[in-house]
Design a protein around this nucleic acid. Structure first.
Lengths: 332, 332
DNA sequence: CTGAAAGCGCTAACAA
DNA sequence: TTGTTAGCGCTTTCAG
């Protein structure tokens, strides 16, 4: 019996018009106090809840936004997602969420699904969509904010760190510590951040006149284990720069399994600063990415866009920070 | 210019009625092929996307469901959320998500928000809502499925493991290994699963005629560190049963910091089996909770409910499993 | 300050 | 097989 009352029911019960009910619903100040209370009473008695759907249709705007990301199960994303969600709720939006596993098909599908749902805008964390497709999305006439990736030439705002520079600095630190044989555990080639970090590594090595050694794999723990086994045998490094913390954690596991000491024999630096980088043994030195803040920023920019405020397109670069922990011998 | 075309635009461009367009949109088979193609062509040329909002208003049903959980940042939840999301998408729903930080106020707010959004149902992972409030929600006339908690007497389906028995078994295992001084690191008293696990621990200890020692704290790493320091000094245990893995991981850190050996001097069992329990040193023995499956099951039940199929109310108990790793000396 | 009426974009009988 | 006609529940001019 509940959830059925409509604005008309309220109107007749309060002996006013639908328009008046609508006014009190929208806090229109020019409703006489007495009438307002009569309406409020009716609303309460009927357990009336306005239908967002009907309102949206009438106003042609919604207060929903969407988040499309690779996989919430990857420890880097929950923090980012939380940032977006907190910003979204604070700004009055409800948040849709979809995991794509980096599948381009799914990414397209979810984007179009959300457009159908009439979301006001979308935060997109995509690695797999080719630039061509992204340009196509630009014609969709819906605000889109990118995270952790930028599309040269596309009219999208993007929020991310300077992956190239971050990697460059991390590797340079290692070099400064006297390391010469520094290997890189890279992420998938089609992921923007992985690619940028790899370039940063290569540049730093080249600038120092050192020979690079790169192993490419997935962004997960198992890949870290495997890649490390390979690198250990083929390159015998004294330091490792991993493209993300999961990879670095896998490296730690494999290295210790072989009885090699960290950081004495091999130093390691990861990237992301997921919570577990502080809990591992040894604790992991890493490039700290302010994921929460990236999320909040993306949410705020999207809000502006949804409200029609002209923003960018531009790249919002968030500051990263090299965090030194035990895996590189601590602060120093 | 895009995103503006309506069904009427398509209709006139294809020289048919809105009804016909609606029919091809809904794959109604009895539209003549020639006409269908004409409509499809018009749709394509206009870049037309139907408005879910308008459709929802007309049909009085939506294909949206909601997920309300404490904090996606806690490593246990992403897997559960993923299960729900996968099930949701597979069954044709879009998913709203909201984090509550176990704040009862927020939980209520988000529930009512989602009701306003006209979601078809809600998966609720709540610890803080008192049973009274839950009963109130029952009058909302919207399908709700609970995860990791049950409300005696409330007309809700619930999907969860048998926390009491899981804890009982874990502690019994420890006792079987010869441990006598077994302490328990508990989670917050107001969280259902924490409370059940504590009872399971107490019962097992009592049944074995052993003296229990319980420390209560939060469900996080830092609390694990603190509680362990306390327990170590006050009780000097030879084994620890932690209410979740984060707590157990904190315990490992504190114990090793003091130079105490695991499992030689102290054995540890956690609960959840988050991914990092396999990555720690030593790897963590734990009660494996099939979070993904809990999510999927919850999603499927909700789908039934949304479709009007009568289900329960009943409790769906998912099987847990004790996983023995290094922190208890490995399998055995 | 309040009411009447039109309409948002789509679906769903009911006709034709 | 396709078109006509009403709404779905709310907002929003425009009158009064």
């Amino acid at each position: 019996m509940k959830g059925k009352a409509t604005i008309s029911d309220v109107a007749s019960r309060a002996n006013v018009s639908k328009a008046t009910v609508s006014r009190v619903l929208n806090h229109n100040p020019q409703v006489k106090k007495e009438i307002r209370e009569r309406v409020l009473k009716a609303i309460d008695e009927l357990g009336y809840r306005p239908s967002a759907i009907a309102r949206n249709l009438a106003t042609k705007r919604t207060n929903m936004i969407g988040l499309i990301l690779p996989d919430i199960t990857n420890p880097y994303f929950p923090v980012l997602a939380r940032g977006i969600e907190d910003a979204a709720h604070r700004l009055g939006y409800s948040l849709f969420i979809s995991n794509t596993d980096n599948d381009p098909q799914l990414e397209r599908k979810y984007i179009y699904d959300m457009v159908e749902q009439q979301v006001g805008g979308i935060v997109l964390i995509s690695s797999s969509l080719d630039d061509q497709t992204m340009l196509e999305l630009a014609h969709l006439d819906i605000p889109i904010v990118l995270c952790d990736r930028l599309i040269p030439g596309a009219p999208f705002n993007a929020v991310l760190i300077d992956d190239f520079r971050a990697a460059y600095e991390a590797v340079t630190y290692l070099i400064g510590q006297g390391h010469v044989r520094i290997a890189h555990l890279a992420g998938p080639n089609n992921i923007h951040s992985a690619e940028s970090r790899k370039r940063g590594y290569l540049q730093a090595m080249q600038d120092a006149g050192l020979t690079p050694f790169v192993s490419v794999g997935e962004f997960n723990f198992e890949s870290g284990v495997q890649q490390t086994a390979f690198v250990l045998e083929e390159f015998n490094p004294t330091a490792l720069f991993a493209s993300n913390d999961l990879l670095a954690l896998g490296a730690i596991q494999e290295i210790r399994r072989r009885g090699i000491r960290i950081p004495e024999n091999i130093a390691i630096i990861g990237c992301d600063d997921i919570s577990f980088s502080r809990m591992s043994r040894p604790t992991l030195s890493t490039i700290s990415i302010p994921a929460y803040q990236i999320g909040v920023t993306a949410g705020e920019i999207l809000d502006q866009l949804v409200k029609g405020v002209k923003v960018g397109p531009k790249n919002f670069i968030i500051e990263h920070k090299l965090i030194l922990r035990e895996s590189t011998g601590g602060v120093g």
